[in-house]
């Protein structure tokens, strides 16, 4: 029985009865963190090429998506903002990643986010819906969040969180690719990969803000992306996380990728002139052993930087 079958069976046999809410705990991978995680970083104005390069540096998409896989690509589509306002992941980057996943033989590519503004406006005005529609491929889905699909999950290693409702598609994915946009956020200083995982949780998300750094790290113990790709093509420096003023946006033309979510966040922090230790969630996740935050200890793979 694999995880998906288990989930399906639990859903089938017990859901609907309040006394038997499925309480799941996701098997955690305790494999020792590799001493030096790889971090691919590329700079340039051709974003499609940047995506290709970072994937190639990490061994190619085939390493992360196997034929027949159900792939989740999770961008930030949180806000009713246009691509040039840099509040959502760049649609060009999302589209390129979906194409790579398809090439690697994905059976289905799901792209979704639990938005903050109205769902349809966010999908539409982020440019992501139109970018995916232009692929005209039935394997690619960009459905809106379906409230029936949130499953309570126990967070065993959590220090501040014990239980969270998590989106079923995210849990069941064979390959989960996290594609945050790097931007300013007043409470967490920046929003990067770990913060982007808030897009797959249900319930009252505002309460995450009380002790946010630790809670994000706790969440990262159960939402472990196969790959984190940080879109720093345009970064929002002020008035985040939704911005709205293009004067707050800086073109950095950078994309970075890693299988280590903490390393990806840590390195992206430097693009804002900050240190990895400035971000509480990075520190908390490092302390939980979820990844590396010391840039000195990362193996940087790049042809342009």
């Amino acid at each position: 029985m694999n995880r998906r079958e288990f989930l399906r069976d639990v859903m089938f046999w017990s859901a609907g009865l309040s006394i038997s809410i499925p309480r799941l705990s996701i098997a955690e991978v305790f494999a020792a963190t590799p001493p030096s995680p790889y971090l691919a970083i590329e700079k340039g104005v051709d974003y499609i090429k940047l995506v290709e390069q970072v994937l190639a540096s990490l061994g190619g998409m085939n390493k992360y998506v196997r034929p027949g896989d159900r792939v989740v690509i999770k961008p930030n589509i949180g806000w009713d903002r246009s691509p040039k306002q840099a509040a959502n992941t760049n649609p060009v980057v999302v589209k390129a990643l979906v194409e790579h996943a398809l090439e690697a033989g994905a059976a289905k590519v799901l792209v979704f986010d639990r938005t903050c503004n109205e769902k349809r406006r966010c999908y539409k005005n982020s440019g992501i819906e139109d970018a995916l529609k232009s692929l005209k491929n039935r394997k690619v889905r960009h459905e809106h969040i379906d409230n029936r699909k949130f499953i309570p999950v126990e967070i065993k290693r959590g220090k501040a969180l014990t239980r969270m409702e998590i989106y079923r598609d995210a849990l069941e994915a064979d390959s989960y690719i996290n594609v945050p946009v790097a931007k300013h956020h007043s409470l967490s200083t920046l929003t990067l990969g770990l913060k982007n995982s808030m897009g797959v949780i249900g319930g009252n998300r505002g309460q995450m803000h009380h002790n946010l750094g630790q809670k994000l790290a706790d969440l990262a113990t159960v939402i472990q992306p196969t790959l984190t790709i940080i879109d720093a093509t345009k970064i929002l420096l002020r008035n985040g996380p939704q911005g709205g003023n293009v004067k707050d946006v800086k073109r950095t033309d950078t994309i970075l990728a890693s299988t280590d979510p903490v390393a990806a966040d840590a390195y992206a922090t430097t693009l804002f002139g900050l240190k990895p230790t400035d971000i509480k969630s990075t520190v908390a996740a490092y302390q939980l052993g979820l990844g590396e935050m010391d840039i000195e200890k990362m193996q940087i793979l790049s042809s342009t930087v």
Binding site: C116, N117, S186, L187, H210, N239, P241, Q242, G244, D248
Partner: peptide
């Protein structure tokens, strides 16, 4: 309001404030 009354960090309001120059500051 939690940061005033309880000393608990929050500012969810500030995060969502939609005006490009945020009307909620702190």
């Amino acid at each position: 309001c939690l940061p005033y009354a309880k000393g608990i960090p929050c500012i969810v309001c500030e995060e969502h404030c939609p005006t490009p120059d945020k009307a909620i500051k702190f």
